[in-house]
Design a protein around this nucleic acid. Structure first.
Lengths: 189, 189
DNA sequence: CCTACCGATCGGTAGG
DNA sequence: CCTACCGATCGGTAGG
């Protein structure tokens, strides 16, 4: 059983790590966020690093689950690619702080945890590569498409959403998915 | 006249800020990098913030000059867009530390400098939007192209290069420009 | 969860 | 550019 209070601490940590970065957040900052002293946090967590591990691993899990769900669908590559994109956008928009910490602060992890996260990230990217390969084999995607490069470029667009998207802006969530899919599929020519 | 030593300090600061972030770099770390004590740095710079300002403003200047050069060309929108993309890739690959610090650490700037950098960034993006608008007006780009969204997505791909590109990897610099241009123009369908 | 700390490190300064 | 510092803040602990 994980206490509610511990969950609260991890959630607030994700918020501050996302906003100011790991090194820009002190345990006293985090305590203030929760209405207690920095030293009191050690009743709930072992260390500051421990908090980062919890947040980043949650991010890794969310993305992994999203990819697994999308890959479980059968159908044309375009539809499976849409499912992957839709899932990725969903994870970011529904878990903004966790996603931002996962994307920007994983490098601060100790070597062991960092290696694990990099492995998970590579496994996640493989989901995109495999669906793009499927499209090429089906003949629905251009035959000179390089799955590796396209995956990196597509994920570049998806991951950057964290940096500019405003939930109350002109672009709805569904629009966003369609714009990215359309640019990737048809281009602007 | 700016002393060579001051240039050295700023350059080393860019390297460490890019690698570990502003808050992850101490003045003593920076001194060690240059073979002197942290306190000795204050003969060359006023403060740690001052160093960040220098690096980020240099980044802003490099991008701005690149855009100005690309906009100075006349011709079809496709060619001008290629010039913009080529310039952006060039700035990142030739000034990796400065570009990374500009892209990731500008948020740490004091409000005044941060506002200036955000303004410069918006002006830079306007170069992309205007060329895309030109393409739509020419009829060479799809009429339902939204310059604003396409610019953000394109710059997402370009800015992320800093995160994954290896100069000695399989993808040459020219290849990289062509892949991004091709995906943006034609898509993979 | 607070009180009362700890040693280490932070950005920065005075004086040479 | 170093010596010798400064006060402030850091992550973390013992004991209640």
């Amino acid at each position: 059983m994980v206490s509610t209070r511990r969950r609260d601490v991890i959630e607030a940590a994700g918020r501050l790590f996302a906003e100011r970065g790991y090194h820009g957040t002190s345990m006293r900052d985090l305590g203030r966020e929760l209405g207690l002293l920095g030293s009191s946090l050690y009743s709930h967590v072992e260390s500051k690093q421990d908090l980062l591990v919890e947040v980043v691993e949650e991010g890794a899990r969310l993305f992994e689950e999203s990819a697994a769900g999308a890959l479980a669908t059968t159908g044309a590559a375009v539809d499976r690619l849409r499912a992957l994109i839709d899932g990725h956008v969903g994870v970011i928009l529904d878990n903004l702080d966790v996603a931002r910490t996962f994307l920007n602060e994983a490098r601060v992890l100790d070597p062991g945890h960092r290696a694990r996260v990099l492995g998970a990230r590579d496994h996640y990217e493989e989901a995109f590569r495999s669906v793009i390969r499927q499209g090429v084999e089906e003949g629905s995607f251009r035959s000179d498409t390089d799955p590796k490069t396209v995956t990196i470029l597509l994920l570049s667009m998806l991951n950057a959403i964290e940096r500019w998207y405003h939930p109350h802006g002109p672009l709805g969530r569904g629009d966003l998915v369609e714009r990215i899919l359309e640019l990737t599929l048809r281009g602007i020519l």
